[in-house]
């Protein structure tokens, strides 16, 4: 397989997972950027455990997910039902703290980067298998009682509370689930890419994920499945002189999409139309 195709598939898979991890808490109206910190922690842990302790892949995978869950669990007691913007800043702050910790830790490669993560056989197919599993998990949540309750919370917290929804518990659940998915993404990222740099986990990566989520459509889980390959592919097809401006392109795309196509490419209505046609 050509390396271009390999990286395209690898980044597409990871980005879909990360977009889902932001999509999930956004169901209750929260922009939970903390998942990027979960990804960072789990990626570095996975790399370290594989290189230094030679843990088996399956164990690392489980540990990575667990790390994501734990990291989002603790703050969620405080920010499970916090205003969206507070959740944003808590997330950004924790990312920054984790990043500083990595940069100051010689064992994790500091600012130079962490290299030499061993390869895993058949990782790419496995990645997509896990992606499908995560997708099934999110689909289950979306179509359960929790998903319906989340839709009410998104529109109005007070109404939801009046209807007997425990807004905080619901928010916590979505945040923790998102943390687990981000933990999975972190482990896969470490093994797929093979090296880690603290510089990667910055505001830019959040901008990229937001662009993908809002372009695809934030009201269903299927939006990012469409938008991520398009945006990733665009980056590969563009001449490198333009591709170095990708941050600007993503930012502009995000602004234009929010202004002109508020629901994104795939909305709930698109899905209904699609289902109607396939039935007919």
């Amino acid at each position: 397989m050509s390396s271009v195709l390999y990286y395209f598939l690898a980044f597409t898979g990871i980005n879909i997972l990360m977009c889902w991890s932001i999509y999930l808490p956004y169901r209750v109206g929260q922009l939970h950027y903390l998942t990027v910190a979960c990804m960072l922690a789990s990626a570095y842990f996975s790399g370290f455990a594989a290189r230094e302790w030679s843990w088996p892949f399956a164990l690392i995978l489980a540990a990575g997910i667990l790390i994501g869950v734990l990291i989002s669990l603790l703050p969620s007691f405080a920010i499970g039902d916090a205003p969206c913007f507070t959740v944003v800043i808590v997330g950004l702050t924790i990312i920054f703290i984790f990043k500083t910790a990595v940069e100051n830790s010689a064992a994790l490669g500091g600012t130079i980067g962490f290299f030499g993560i061993p390869e895993v056989q058949h990782l790419l197919p496995l990645t997509y298998l896990l992606l499908a599993a995560a997708g099934a998990f999110i689909y289950r949540i979306d179509h359960s009682r929790l998903g319906r309750a989340a839709s009410v919370v998104f529109v109005d917290k007070n109404t939801a509370a009046a209807l007997g929804v425990d807004v905080k518990q619901l928010g916590m659940f979505f945040q923790i689930a998102a943390g687990g998915i981000a933990g999975l993404a972190g482990t896969l990222y470490a093994f797929l890419i093979g090296s880690l740099f603290p510089e990667f986990f910055n505001l830019g990566v959040i901008g990229t994920l937001m662009c993908m989520l809002f372009t695809g459509g934030h009201s269903t889980m299927w939006g990012v499945v469409v938008s991520v390959p398009i945006l990733e592919g665009m980056q590969l097809l563009l001449p490198s002189a333009i591709a170095s401006w990708r941050q600007v392109i993503y930012a502009l795309t995000l602004i234009v999409i929010i202004l002109l196509l508020p629901g994104g490419l795939i909305t709930k209505r698109t899905l209904v139309r699609f289902k109607g046609r396939s039935r007919a």
Partner: peptide
């Protein structure tokens, strides 16, 4: 933005964060 989404400060944050990325880049 306000015309499209109403006065939603969270959407305004997403847009202004993009602007921040744009300016930085």
């Amino acid at each position: 933005l306000a015309k499209r989404h109403g006065l939603d400060i969270n959407v305004s944050f997403v847009v202004s964060m993009s602007m921040a990325l744009l300016i930085t880049d």
